[in-house]
Design a protein around this nucleic acid. Sequence first.
DNA 1: TTGAAACTATACAGACCTGTATGTATAATT
DNA 2: AATTATACATACAGGTCTGTATAGTTTCAA
Lengths: 194, 194
Amino acid sequence: MANKSKKEHILKIASGLFNKQGIRATGVDQVVSESQIAKMTLYNHFQSKDELVLAYLRGQDEQWRKWFESSVNKQGTNPSEKLLAIYDVLGEWFEDPDFNGCTYIKTASEFLDRSHIYFEAAHHYKMFMREFIASLVEELETSNREALTNRLFLLVEGAITTRMMQTDLESARHARETAEVILEKFIQNKRQPT
Amino acid sequence: MANKSKKEHILKIASGLFNKQGIRATGVDQVVSESQIAKMTLYNHFQSKDELVLAYLRGQDEQWRKWFESSVNKQGTNPSEKLLAIYDVLGEWFEDPDFNGCTYIKTASEFLDRSHIYFEAAHHYKMFMREFIASLVEELETSNREALTNRLFLLVEGAITTRMMQTDLESARHARETAEVILEKFIQNKRQPT
DNA sequence: TTGAAACTATACAGACCTGTATGTATAATT
DNA sequence: AATTATACATACAGGTCTGTATAGTTTCAA
């Protein structure tokens, strides 16, 4: 196994455990034993568990967002279609048998202190989602872009949370249907009569 | 200090710590020292940390829901007013300087295993919120009560999550404004002309 | 083939965790 | 006055945690 890929291997195993069990519940020893490496190898690549966790948070963002944004852009051709596709892609995510909720909602829940470095990271990465919506809304013809962004973002977070909590297994569809109503309300109707 | 109130005192201190720091991050020793009691006193009242945690989850539900439902019922006189009042009351909750997010979203985040007793408890208590909405929707004249309940519930959970994550500090207002649009869409317009 | 870099295994330090054991103090009840 | 319940302080068992120390082994390039 090559030098660089060993670090990636450790990070991959650790990410899986953090996602499934939580950060506090996952010890370095478990990461070591499941990665089948020596403990010192981990500490050669990561200065501390903190650094490993931050790499995990960064990696999840890169990986997940790449998948999410490309999936959305594939499904929709114009901005309002893309905005609605967000909820369809969420639905695909929810159907993944490995779906374990949103890394950042979970991390913020575990480290609620706003000045904690993990909370800050979680907040930071979560804002990208909001900005992705905002960038699509920007392309729309509507009077109040910020208000629309807030509402659509709210629906995304609600869908993720209710799905994670198992309180609404069809939350993605419900969010989409709600988004449709909201979008209609905000968009100056420019549709061609068919 | 009376017999019964000692148990309540311990539970109160523990609940504050669980809420602020999380369940895993709060050790029995800290509960003991901050309660200013002997460790054996805690273990005389609670068989284990598990039992203390379950008492915490139960207590939060009783306490919070009593406050929430009575606040909502105070603010609204008819069902649709009450449904919208939900988001105003959420807003009041969010302004509490001790606001620390939803106990059950946090607990589910910390103990993601669906068969874990804490996750089950969190899910259980969370469903009461959904049922509260459903009971109000029940009184409305509308065609699809379940669909409306799902949407309003989604907005509640989205508002709580975005507020906890600090990604939308006005989420209660945004949820309310969204709920107004949804409600209008679902209710057969029976308003008297004014 | 030699030498540096990376990895391995094992042991340990020091702090934390949950839960128990022991013995004492206090106050109400019998 | 004796009993009972409750609380107290202290110590400890046995396990976990993060991180380090040490010494031996593999890998790979010059």
